[in-house]
């Protein structure tokens, strides 16, 4: 059996590499963009606020699977053509930005107005206030919720099979169908557990670092 695992491992690992790439790119794009969109959601300029609210509603109100299909098969109808891999990153980033924006919005709203006033009478600029006082507090508030989404993202990345990308789950499925055994899927499950385990461990470390103040 070990021999069999060794045989299928290279294809599973190459699938896992696709999973990891989608995961990392989505985070790298969505987290900063989520902060920007959250500031837009809190903007005093109401047209911007309404557009962003609509975007968040659309992204959170429809299945990610459907969004993937639309980006890859639907957008070419209006002349926007993505490669499979790019389509996946685009759809995931669009979807996760909406979730992160909502989380950050809640974080910003949780900062009492007194903190801004206190910074103001101490002559701090708007940017200094955000950087030194507000953002550190927002980060501490949002880390647990962001962590949930990060772990979800590892698993959600398996949806890319629908546009024909070869990720971890698909690699397992192919081996399973070819060799008529469930063992490759057991291996797939273990690899997912390792990936989410690493994420959970890193997030725990971040939370611990932030727990020295309340």
């Amino acid at each position: 059996m070990l021999h069999y695992f060794a045989e299928i491992l290279p294809s599973l690992l190459s699938g896992a590499w696709m999973t990891i790439r989608i995961f990392l790119w989505t985070l790298i794009i969505s987290i900063p963009l989520g902060v920007v969109v959250s500031l837009g959601l809190l903007s005093k300029f109401s047209p911007l606020r309404w557009i962003l609210k609509f975007y968040v509603w659309l992204m959170r109100g429809t299945p990610l699977l459907l969004q993937l299909i639309f980006v890859f098969y639907g957008l070419p109808i209006i002349g926007v053509i993505f490669q499979r891999y790019d389509a996946a990153i685009f759809a995931f980033a669009l979807n996760y930005t909406a979730y992160f924006a909502e989380i950050f919005r809640g974080g910003f709203q949780a900062i009492p107005n007194g903190q801004f006033e206190s910074a103001r009478v101490l002559r701090l600029t708007r940017w200094q206030t955000l950087r030194k006082i507000v953002i550190p507090q927002v980060v501490k508030i949002v880390v647990p919720s962001i962590g949930n989404e990060v772990v979800n993202l590892v698993k959600d990345s398996s949806l890319v099979y629908v546009i024909g990308l070869g990720d971890l789950l698909r690699a397992g499925n192919i081996a399973s169908a070819r060799d008529v055994t469930l063992l490759p899927l057991v291996a797939v499950g273990i690899i997912y557990l390792i990936l989410t385990g690493i994420c959970t461990y890193l997030l725990r470390r971040v939370e611990q670092r932030l727990s020295k103040w309340e």
């Binding site: 009492p112 903190q115 206190s118 009478v121 002559r123 701090l124 006082i133 507090q137």
Partner: peptide
């Protein structure tokens, strides 16, 4: 012409130590 304020609920910065609460503005603003 700074006018200092001690707020009713103090509004210290929770993410900074006592020393950093005190030195932050003199360093950044002054």
């Amino acid at each position: 012409k700074v006018i200092g304020v001690v707020f009713q609920d103090f509004q210290l910065f929770p993410n900074l130590t006592v020393m950093d609460n005190v030195t932050l503005a003199p360093e950044l603003a002054l």
